[in-house]
Design a protein around this nucleic acid. Structure first.
Length: 587
RNA sequence: GCCCCCGUAGCUCAGUGGAUAGAGCAGUGGUUUCCUAAACCAUGUGCGUAGGUUCGAUUCCUAUCGGGGGUACCA
């Protein structure tokens, strides 16, 4: 059990004995480390409720609590704050317990299954800076849920259906009408070789898209091609499959450069075959209706402040909208994947869309009440001037270029600082790549996901301060500390009672993991994890600075400290992993 | 018009209804016979504004100002 749970239990009993409600007594980490290690603020509200004097109640609780073996001291301060310090022996037992257990002593969440939808990538388009956010936040959350004991599934959920696909088909038909894919009388197999490369698609897509805006006749063709594709015209489907394959290959490479891997490469098209049945299912429940030639679901609720528009299942041409496929995807996730929770890592601008989709899923019974649907919205990535980040030519920077740029900049700074001098050129370049990824990952994940943060590679690649490279440095330092000690014939042993202030601080910090992971999951906010990783790293550095192992006289203390170093290193590596930061062997 | 998100130190950002609101950067000063100085230590007139709820509000509610976004046949 986590230290806070144990202390809260003790404190709750003390409140009960003092005649208050036993439901109070919640103990939290101290906000005043100068005064205490833990605090309980419940005396004030409990006294209010019971009509007692808060200080008197706090005094009574303190007197009882002080009897417990775990507690070193309890002081009452201010209007009734309970300031608690625990005994070194208790800390010793808790750190030993955590070190000897699986997953740092975390209590698992049971057998819940969560799906993280964090791709947002589209067929025929390369990833840009905005995808950096969803990729890193999603990957980070997936890894965190996994550590906490959830069964996790990460789905890239490609934008591979709908009008853009029709536009691509239409432009190819316009430019190369002789292709076999456009011959409606053709009944044989289609070529296995793709007629287009990803480079072709990246040129064709914007071309088709702008043609639709300028040429209404072509736009009409694209609409019709979209419907034909969705209705299953063979040649179109075969062509589409090539679009999908070449795109997925390119996307895997880019995501891979960040260490991001998906369990599922599904997309909007994956549910195409179940949409008809789903629409019938919704119609049967009576929540859908016809409106202006379209089939819609009215999702307005009584307590709405705004006029929320209905979700459109079918547009007036009989085409699907992305609302339809998103509802069908929920049906698939609930019925086929049996998920308990779906977390969407998608831009905040989609929040109305998800409100419509979630409401439709609830109204139609597609998503039962016990399945959680969460839109973990994220803000935009801005440039240094505060407006959305753009390249000089006005486009969004490509993700693959940013990764390369970050590595180059890291290399530059490593060279400037005369660091890693014993590395040969190739090894230093390899190191710089990892430093560059760490810089990007921490630069992204240290912001709250809703923040419209300012993207500044120069700041992210800073080798000093609260950055990804700092975390790598500390993890590597913890590792080499053990190696040096081992060389000197000292190895990790049993934890003894902490004897140094910096040691006590480090133990207190590493024991926070449970609460941090819980809060990260509750809020789907990896920045909490990022902040904690820095706290662990900087507290370790203070310990490293003040508790010199090799020159320590007591060999028991040496062994205990080394055990703490080993535990901290493991945790730092895990935290880095959850923050998508690769840890080099040395640096 | 209506709805959503954001306003915190010179800059970039954290912050769980609690005490004296924190980090990093930038600036200044200090620390190395010692496990990686990519480190450590010291150094601060700041919660957009006005009300309300509360024993207690940066946090919750209302209004208002400023910035961003959304508002059925794109995704």
């Amino acid at each position: 059990m986590s230290i806070l749970s144990e202390l809260s239990e003790l404190c709750g009993e003390a409140f009960a004995q003092a005649g208050a409600d036993s439901s109070v007594g919640n103990v939290v980490y101290s906000q005043r480390p100068d005064l205490c290690q833990f605090q309980c603020n419940d005396a004030m509200p409990a006294a209010k409720k019971a009509g007692k004097n808060p200080r008197e109640l706090a005094d009574a609780v303190a007197a009882i609590l002080a009897q417990a073996d775990e507690i070193a001291s309890v002081e009452v301060a201010g209007p009734g704050f309970l300031n608690i310090k625990v005994t070194p022996e208790y800390l010793q037992s808790k750190i030993a317990e955590a070190a000897n257990s699986e997953a740092f002593g975390l209590s698992p969440y049971g057998d819940k299954k969560v799906m993280i939808d964090y791709g947002g990538a589209n067929v025929a388009k390369s990833l840009h800076v905005g995808h950096l956010r969803t990729a890193l936040i999603g990957e980070s959350l997936k890894r965190t849920y996994r550590l906490a004991g959830f069964e996790t599934l990460g789905d890239v959920h490609l934008g591979d259906w709908g009008l853009p696909m029709g536009q691509l088909v239409a432009i190819m038909e316009l430019e190369q009408p002789e292709m076999v894919y456009f011959d409606e009388t053709y009944e044989g197999d289609y070529p296995t070789e793709s007629p287009v490369t990803i480079q072709d698609l990246e040129i064709l897509y914007p071309k088709a898209s702008s043609m639709c805006k300028e040429d209404s006749q072509f736009a009409e063709k694209a609409q019709l091609a979209t419907v034909a594709l969705q209705e299953g015209r063979r040649g179109y489907r075969a062509l589409w499959q090539h679009f999908f394959n070449v795109s997925a290959e390119a996307l895997k490479e880019t995501y891979g450069s960040l260490g991001v891997e998906f369990d599922l490469w599904l997309g909007e098209a994956s549910v195409a075959d179940r949409v008809d049945a789903m629409i019938k299912r919704i119609s049967k429940t009576g929540v859908s209706e016809e409106s202006d030639g379209a089939l819609v679901v009215n999702v307005v609720q009584e307590d709405d402040k705004e006029d929320i528009p209905p979700l459109m299942l079918l547009n007036s041409r009989g085409g699907l909208t992305y609302g339809t496929t998103d509802v069908a995807t929920i049906e698939e996730r609930v019925d086929d994947f049996n998920v308990d929770k779906v977390v969407y890592i998608v831009d905040n601008r989609q929040s109305l869309h998800f409100e419509q989709v979630f409401r439709t899923s609830r109204l139609s019974g597609i998503a039962p009440d016990d399945v959680e649907l969460i839109h973990a919205a994220n803000g935009t990535v801005n440039g240094p001037d505060g407006s959305p980040l753009k390249t000089r030519d006005g486009n969004l920077p490509r993700l693959i270029d940013l990764v390369a740029e970050s590595g180059d900049l890291a290399l530059e700074k490593i060279n400037e600082g005369n660091l890693a001098q014993d590395f040969d050129v190739a090894a230093r370049t390899e190191l710089a790549k990892k430093v560059g990824i760490a810089a990007l990952a921490y630069g992204e994940l240290s912001n709250h996901r809703l923040t419209n943060y300012s993207f500044d590679l120069d700041r992210f690649t800073n080798l000093k301060g609260q950055t990804g490279p700092y975390l790598q440095y500390v993890a590597v330092r913890a590792k080499s500390t053990q190696a040096k000690a081992n060389e000197a014939g000292i190895s990790a042993g049993n934890f003894k009672t902490p004897c140094h202030e910096a040691e006590t601080s480090l133990i207190l910090v590493v024991l926070k993991l449970q609460e941090v992971v819980e809060r990260t999951i509750e809020q789907n906010a990896p920045n909490l994890l990022a902040e904690y990783a820095y706290e662990v790293a900087s507290t370790f550095n203070q310990f490293y600075d003040q508790c010199h192992i090799l020159s320590q006289e007591s060999s028991e203390t040496q062994q205990s400290w080394l055990a703490l170093v080993a535990f901290t290193e493991e945790m730092l590596k895990q935290l880095c992993f959850m923050l998508c930061i690769p840890v080099p062997d040395r640096m």
